[in-house]
């Protein structure tokens, strides 16, 4: 399974109906930029939003995913 699919699955575990843009930062397939929008971020500070994403990607970050550049936005229902 493609890394982007794994990232989608990992994030969808907790984030409600996430809208995702995943792009490769360096071309090597292991430094990924992730823009994620979800209503689950509502009321959370920016740092808490990023921590939530980092926690969901914890397993992937141990091995396949070397670095991520995260940006999060609150999705209005």
């Amino acid at each position: 399974m493609l890394l982007t699919e794994k990232i989608k699955d990992a994030l969808s575990v907790k984030l409600i109906d996430p809208t995702l843009e995943i792009y490769d930062l360096t071309g090597g397939g292991d430094h990924m930029g992730i823009n994620v929008s979800s209503s689950s971020f509502k009321g959370l500070s920016l740092i808490k939003q990023h921590q939530m994403v980092l926690d969901l990607l914890k397993e992937l970050l141990k091995d396949e995913l070397h670095a991520v550049k995260i940006s999060t936005t609150v999705k209005e229902e």
């Binding site: 500070s45 920016l46 740092i47 990023h50 550049k69 995260i70 940006s71």
Partner: peptide, 9 residues
């Protein structure tokens, strides 16, 4: 509050 990315954002 955050790291460099978040502070810039």
């Amino acid at each position: 509050i955050g790291g460099a990315d978040i502070i810039t954002e």
